[in-house]
Design a protein around this nucleic acid. Structure first.
Lengths: 207, 207
DNA sequence: TAGATTGTTAATCGATTAACAATC
DNA sequence: TAGATTGTTAATCGATTAACAATC
């Protein structure tokens, strides 16, 4: 295995490999060649081999890749062999839905609290997790060693929430607010309206 | 203006330009140079000019770009000058949250109904929109000339729902299910777990 | 007019694809 | 061993950045 820089594009494909291998593993397939895998995922066989070789020589000449092992290796690369504590800032629609989303807890991403400024919400619980006042967030993050902060608040408070989270020691941010937030920790943006606009662009471009 | 192929990367930047220009317009800024805009958005000035020139010569030498006009032009390119009818297949957590999300209606994306197979949900309304049985979806899409279908159902039914939607004449699909759905119309995927996995990768890669 | 900044062509950089020797 | 398929280097392709003439 040679050290090489892992590009953004490769990183974005990792979860897709992970999903496909999970599927194959579930079907009881125990080996797969780069060309089969590429075909199933709409990629190029060379690309699959290049991608995987960024992390190690998981295959075997003349045989292909062992599905179960590769699945585990990618889980490990993605950091899915440990668990994470999450908090959600903004207990509105999106915040509540994310809290209830079962897919995360299954993979070790556990929401432990929500925060809001709306007095009507504070004190309630969502799927068993309490909604607390934002003023308590900083202390809570510190005391509970929270790993990831989800921002699903109002547009104008997003940056400030991010700053508070980072200052309190959070290690990554998942931002649902359509605003470019600047922070010193890794951040992933889910900008729903951006995606919707791309869709309407495509819909109209088709004609 | 020369005809040139608009790449995926350019399309993904369009909503960001749109957002930034909206912000500037709101602040009463009436002109901006490619270098200022680039700096605000973390891009390269050349890139900004190249991107915009895919669609027209909106700028003026020695002056820059007129903010309000450019904002309108991009709205038009993105297809935001008309409205769209949407339906949601899968009225669980995510489906309901999307239905309640106010950002869309403001931009002309109107959810008119939700569909589910859960009898306990059917007959309820979410933010004033009815939850109907999936069996009625095909007819409903046809009768109401629905433009966009949102899929927020169970993993195993995603492909079938997509097929039904396309067959009924839907023109674009917004998919929230972590499965690679194959369709003949434009599709945008929001794969929450993929994004979360990229985040956990980055969190661990930092160390 | 002179200065500024675009539109556009050319150069660079990085990612994808092809080719093939290594090897299971 | 022979066939298959990887790992890896080389070639191609496309996107980003630089440069500069055109022009407001």
């Amino acid at each position: 295995m040679k050290e090489r820089k892992v590009s953004e594009a490769v990183i974005r494909r990792l979860p897709r490999y992970y999903r496909q291998l999970e599927l194959l593993n579930g079907k009881g397939v125990d080996r797969i060649s780069s060309s089969e895998l590429a075909q199933q995922m709409g990629l190029n066989p060379s690309q699959v081999r290049q991608d995987l070789n960024c992390f190690g020589g998981f295959g075997q000449q003349g045989y292909g890749y062992p599905v179960q092992n590769l699945h585990k290796e990618i889980a490990n690369i993605l950091g899915l062999t440990r668990s994470y504590k999450l908090v959600i800032a903004g207990a509105g629609n999106i915040g509540q839905a994310l809290c209830k989303y079962e897919g995360f807890a299954q993979k070790g991403f556990e929401v432990i609290a929500l925060f809001d400024i709306n007095e009507a919400l504070i004190g309630q619980t969502i799927a068993g997790r309490p909604i607390l006042h934002v003023d308590q967030m900083s202390g809570f993050i510190r005391e509970n060693s929270v790993d990831i902060g989800i921002i699903s608040a109002r547009r104008r408070s997003a940056q400030q929430i991010a700053d508070t989270m980072v200052e309190a020691g959070i290690r990554a941010i998942w931002n649902f607010v359509p605003v470019d937030v600047t922070v010193s920790v890794p951040i992933e943006n889910i900008q729903l309206s951006d995606s919707m606009f791309v869709l309407s662009y495509r819909l109209n471009a088709q004609e």
